[in-house]
Design a binder for these strands. Structure first.
Lengths: 199, 199
DNA sequence: CCCTCAGGTTAACGACCGCTAACCTCCCTG
DNA sequence: CAGGGAGGTTAGCGGTCGTTAACCTGAGGG
C-alpha cells in the first residue's frame, strides 16, 4: 500500500469532481461547465486535459474496474495457493467494502453509467468486471461446493448489491462509524453466502 | 389480488415503455420522441396524456413507492397483531422479491432517478420509502432484539441492495428459472439478517 | 347531418449543451 | 532574454431536446 503525499494534479481533481457530479445527477445530467466550475476553471478549459466528456467517464469506469480486479488478484496471490478459502473470501469482502466506503461515487457510477460508454471502452470494463466476478465465484464454490455455478454467480452479484448499498445508507457522515458499518456489512455478506451455500 | 384482463390504456403503455427506456439509458438519456416511438405515436403526441416528461417519471416513482408500501402494509395486516415475526419477515421478503423480479425497470428507477423529480414529488416519494423501510425495521428488530435501531436500518437497506440486484444479474431470460432465483434471494436475505442480528 | 372532441400530426421555437476557434498569459528553459 | 508550450479565457457554432402552436381526422351523439 503506497500512500500519496504530493498534491493531486489538476487532472485528478477533475476526475474526482466529475465522479461526484456524475453520481449525483447522472452523466447526461451534468454539463461540462459544471465540472469545470467544481475545480475552479470554466467549461472548455477541461479540454486541455481530456478529449471530451465521454473520456472522463471512460477513465473513471476503467479505473475502478481495474483497481477492483487488481486488488482482488493481489489478495488472492498473497494468501498463497493452498489458502483457506474462508480466509480468502473474508479478504475479498474486506477489500470490496473498503472500496464501497471510500469511493462511494465510483461504486455508484460503476453499475449505473456503463451504457454511456463507447463500445470499445464498455467491452473493456465489462471484461474487467467479469474477471472480478469470476474470481469471487471460484472462491465461493470452493467454500460451498453444494452451489451450482449459476447459483454461485447469482449469489456473488447479490452480495455485490448488498455491499454496494452503502451509498444509499445516508448522508456522508451519518453512519454509525466506519468500522462498525464495515463489520456489519462483512457479517451480512458472510451470512448471505452461508445461506446460499446451505443444502 | 385482482387480475387485469382488459387491454392496457395508451397511458399505461406510455408509462411502461418510459420506465423501460429510463431504466436503460437514464432519464436525461431518453428523448420524448423515443418514448413516443416506443408506443407507436410520435413525440409531441405524448402531451395529450402527460403535461411533460417529468410528470411521467414522477408518476412512475410515486406509483412504485406507493405500491411497495401498500403491499407491505397489507401483508402485515393479514398476519394479525400477534403474528410470528419470522413469518412476517418472510412475507415482506417474498413481496419485495416479487416486485424486483416482475418490475425490474421500476426497481432500477426507484433508487436511481429520484433526484430528477420536482421538490414536492421527491418529498412524497421519500416519505413513502421511509415508511416502507420503517415497517421493515420494526419487524427486524422484533425478530432480532440485539440489533440497535441504526444497525437494523442499515441491515434493511443492505438487504434491499441484495434483493434489488436482480436487474444486474443477466439478460432478462437468462436466469435459472424465476422460482429458483426467488428462493435463492430469499434464503440469502434471511441469512444476511440472521448474521446481522447475531450477538 | 353536423358538431365536438379525443387523440393524433408536422413545423418550429428557444434553451441548452458539447465542443472548437481564437486569443491570452505565465513560466520554464536554451 | 527570446520563445514556446502548458493551461487558461471568451465567443460562438451546430445539434439536440422539451415544449408549444396550428392543423387534421375519425368516431359518437343530439
Amino acid at each position: 500500500m503506497v500512500t500519496r503525499t504530493d498534491a493531486p494534479t489538476r487532472r485528478e481533481q477533475i476526475l474526482k469532481e466529475a465522479a461526484r457530479l456524475f453520481a449525483e445527477r447522472g452523466f447526461h445530467g451534468v454539463g461540462v461547465d459544471e465540472i469545470g466550475a467544481a475545480v475552479g476553471i470554466s467549461g472548455p478549459g477541461l479540454y486541455r486535459h481530456f478529449p471530451g466528456k465521454d473520456a472522463m467517464l471512460a477513465e473513471l469506469l476503467v479505473g475502478i474496474s481495474g483497481r477492483l480486479l487488481t486488488g482482488a488478484k493481489l489478495r488472492l496471490a498473497e494468501s498463497g495457493a493452498a489458502a483457506d478459502p474462508s480466509a480468502v473470501l473474508d479478504s475479498l469482502i474486506e477489500g470490496h467494502i473498503d472500496f464501497a466506503l471510500d469511493d462511494r461515487p465510483l461504486i455508484t457510477l460503476h453499475d449505473r453509467e456503463l451504457d454511456r460508454l463507447r463500445d470499445s471502452d464498455r467491452k473493456l470494463v465489462r471484461q474487467l468486471q467479469r474477471q472480478y466476478v469470476e474470481l469471487w465465484v471460484e472462491v465461493v464454490r470452493e467454500l460451498y461446493p453444494a452451489l451450482t455455478e449459476p447459483a454461485a454467480r447469482s449469489s456473488v452479484h447479490s452480495v455485490f448489491g448488498l455491499l454496494n448499498s452503502t451509498p444509499h445508507l445516508a448522508r456522508p457522515g451519518a453512519l454509525p462509524g466506519r468500522s462498525v458499518t464495515a463489520e456489519l456489512l462483512h457479517r451480512m455478506a458472510r451470512g448471505a453466502f452461508a445461506a446460499a451455500g446451505a443444502e
